[in-house]
Design a binder for these strands. Structure first.
Lengths: 345, 345
DNA sequence: GCTTGGATTTCAAGCGCTTGAATTCCCTGT
DNA sequence: ACAGGGAATTCAAGCGCTTGAAATCCAAGC
C-alpha cells in the first residue's frame, strides 16, 4: 500500500496502534485469554484476569472497535436521527445518552440538515451498523418507514406515524388540557387556543383544548384562532384577537415560539401579560425559560421519552418482535410568570 | 454463538446481510473484481464495471463499512466534539457536513452533556477510529490537548488554546471593532461595552472595543461595564448603566444573550431601543434573529470556519505535520433593528 | 501409579472487505 | 504458428478481534 494512503501520525511518523496481541505478549499469554479476560467472560482464572487488566491499563490498550464489531455479530450501537438545530432534540439526545449507557448500548448521532435529508441521515446510521434506530420527529413517509423497519427495529419519538412502528410520545391533548385546567384554576373562563394547521400534533393539541374546555363547562367560550409554528404566526394571531370584539383573558399557544410572538405583540399593543392576558406555551423550550420571557409552558419530559425509547429498542433487539406499541407519556405544566389570575371585570 | 446474542431482524428472523460475495456470484465474477469495480480503481473493464454497478443496485448491496475499514487502513472519518445545546455548534455542524463531503470524509458526532465530559466525548470519537478530530469550543486543558494531538491531528474551532494545535477562529477584536464603527457611523460617541470576565475570548473582544474607540478618537468615552454570558448579567449591566450619571447612547454586549438582557431591562425602564440606546450583540444567534428581538449582531461566519477546519484536518492527514497554524477569519456585522442613529441632544 | 474430569489455556477458523502478486486471456508482431 | 506483453481477472493473505473446539494442566479417586 502506498505510504500516502495511510494517515500520518501527528508527528509525521506512522501510527502503530496497540493490538490485543501486544497485551498478550506483555504477560506471556495468548490473545484468546486476553480477549476473554477483557470482555469478562468465563474461562480465565482470577489471577489471569488481574494480570490482563493490569497490563492493558499500563500499556493504555484500547480495543479496536472496528475489528471487534466485525468479529462479534453485534455492534450494540443505536442510531439516532435528529435535527441538530432543535433544542428539544438536544435535550432528548442528552437523555438518550444516559438511558443507553445504562443498558450497555452506544449511540451514534446523525443529523438532518439543509443539504442532508432524512434518507441520507439514516443511511449514515446504517453504515455504522446500528442495530436499531431512534428517529426524533421524522417527516419521512409511512412507506419509507415501513421499508426501514423491515431492516431493523425502528422507534419514533414524538409523533404518531401511521406505520406499524413503535412510537414513544407525550400526550399532547393532556398537555393542553393541563394548561387549560391551570388557567381555569386562576379563574379564567375566556380562554383561546392558537392553532397550527392540520398536522397530527396540531390536531391532537386542538382536540385536547376542546375537550378540556368542555369538561370545565366552557364550551361556549371555545375560540380557536389560526396561528402557526413561529413567532410571526403568534403575532398575527395576537392582532386577530386584538381586533375581535372581546379579548380573551388567556391564550394557549401551539408552541413556545408562537407564544412569544403573542406575548410580544400584546406588549407592544399595551396589553399587559399576565395582567390582562395570560399566555401558555408548549415545549418548555430554553426560550420559555429566559428570564424576560418567563413563559408558562408544557414540558414533554424528554427524560422519560428517551428512557422509554431506549427500552423499546433494546427489547426489540433482545426479545424479538411483537406487535408495534405506542407509549404515551403524560407531560406536565411548568408554571412561570406569563400566567396569572384572571382580571376580574 | 447463542441465538440471543445475535440481533433479531424486525420480523424476528435472522438478518442475512448481503455480502460482496453475493454480488460477485450474481454476475459470475470474483469478489475481487467487484471490490475493485465498486471502489473505482483501475483493473476491471468498462463492461465489468457496468455489470457490477447494475447488480449491486438491483440487489441493494451496501458495503459493510466495518469490514471495509478494517481492511483498508483508513477510515476517512472526522470526529467532531460539540455541545449539542449550542445553536452556534449546530450551525457549524451543518457546515462541517457540507465541507467534509466535498473532501470525501465522513463525520461522526459526539456531544458533551451533563453526564458526559469532554474526555468521554473524545474517547467515543477515537473508538470510531476517526483519523482526526475537530473540537468545537473545547474547555479541555492544554496538557490534555497536547496529549490528544500526539495521537492524531486535532483542530480547534473558536478559541485560542495555548497548545501547539491548529486553531480556526473568528477575529473577535475585529468583530467588536465593526460594531463600534457601525455605531460611530450612526453618530454615536458615547458607546459602552459590556464585558464577560477574563476568558481569552472576552479579553479579545474587550481589546477590540478599546482599540476601535481609540481609532475613532473616542478614548475619553471608553466605558467597560462588568457583565457576563447570560441574560441576567445583561440586565444587571443595564441597571448599572441606568444608575450611572449619564446613559450611553449605545452599548456593545459580549454576546446575544447578554444583549437581550440589556434590551429587556432598558425597555422595562422605559428607555427606548434603539431610540435612546442602540444595542449590538455578538454571535448572530437564532435569538438575535427573532422578529421581536431583532438584534444587530456580529456573525462569526460558521460556514467559513467549518470549511477551514475541514481543510486543515484533511491537510494534516494527507500531507503530514508542519507547525501548528492559526487561521483567523474576519466576522461581519449583521445590522438589524436594535441600532439606530444617535439621539442628538 | 494411572485414569478421570473440571478448570484453564490455546488453536484456528472466521467476520466481510482490500490489494499486492500471480494467473489467465487475448491480441500483436515476426 | 508461437513467444511476448498488456489488460483483466483471480488468488490468497491479511486487517484485529472473537469463540467453538481442541489441547493442556493438575488434583482427586480407585
Amino acid at each position: 500500500m502506498a505510504t500516502r494512503d495511510q494517515p500520518l501520525d501527528a508527528d509525521g511518523t506512522r501510527a502503530r496502534r496497540l493490538r490485543l496481541e501486544d497485551v498478550a505478549a506483555a504477560i506471556g499469554m495468548s490473545p484468546s485469554s486476553v480477549s476473554l479476560a477483557l470482555s469478562d467472560r468465563p474461562g480465565p482464572s482470577e489471577e489471569t484476569r488481574r494480570r490482563v487488566r493490569e497490563a492493558a491499563d499500563r500499556l493504555g490498550y484500547r480495543p479496536d472497535r472496528t475489528a471487534r464489531l466485525l468479529a462479534r455479530r453485534r455492534t450494540r450501537l443505536l442510531g439516532v436521527m435528529l435535527d441538530i438545530r432543535s433544542p428539544f432534540h438536544a435535550e432528548l439526545v442528552e437523555d438518550l445518552h444516559q438511558a443507553s449507557e445504562g443498558r450497555g448500548y452506544d449511540l451514534v448521532l446523525s443529523t438532518v440538515t439543509a443539504g442532508r435529508d432524512e434518507r441520507r441521515a439514516v443511511d449514515a446510521l446504517l453504515d455504522f451498523r446500528c442495530e436499531a434506530v431512534i428517529l426524533l420527529g421524522p417527516a419521512v413517509s409511512v412507506s419509507q418507514l415501513g421499508a426501514l423497519s423491515r431492516q431493523l427495529p425502528v422507534v419514533v419519538i414524538g409523533k404518531q406515524t401511521g406505520a406499524d412502528i413503535d412510537v414513544v410520545r407525550a400526550a399532547d391533548d393532556l398537555g393542553v388540557a393541563q394548561a387549560v385546567d391551570h388557567l381555569v384554576g386562576l379563574r379564567h373562563r375566556d380562554i383561546a387556543f392558537v392553532d397550527a394547521g392540520k398536522g397530527p400534533i396540531a390536531s391532537l393539541r386542538r382536540r385536547g383544548y376542546r375537550t378540556a374546555m368542555r369538561r370545565n363547562g366552557l364550551t361556549g367560550s371555545v375560540r380557536v384562532v389560526p396561528g402557526g409554528l413561529d413567532e410571526r404566526a403568534g403575532a398575527q394571531a395576537a392582532h386577530a384577537l386584538l381586533e375581535s370584539p372581546e379579548l380573551p383573558t388567556a391564550v394557549v399557544a401551539y408552541n413556545d415560539m408562537c407564544a412569544v410572538g403573542l406575548q410580544d405583540a400584546f406588549s407592544r399593543a399595551g396589553v399587559g401579560v399576565p395582567e390582562q392576558v395570560s399566555i401558555v406555551g408548549y415545549d418548555n423550550s430554553t426560550l420559555a425559560r429566559l428570564a424576560h420571557i418567563d413563559l408558562t409552558s408544557v414540558d414533554q419530559d424528554a427524560e422519560q421519552l428517551a428512557a422509554h425509547a431506549v427500552q423499546v429498542a433494546a427489547d426489540r433487539l433482545e426479545n424479538g418482535r411483537g406487535a408495534a406499541e405506542e407509549f404515551v407519556l403524560t407531560p406536565h405544566l411548568v408554571v412561570r410568570g406569563s400566567t396569572g389570575p384572571a382580571a376580574t371585570a
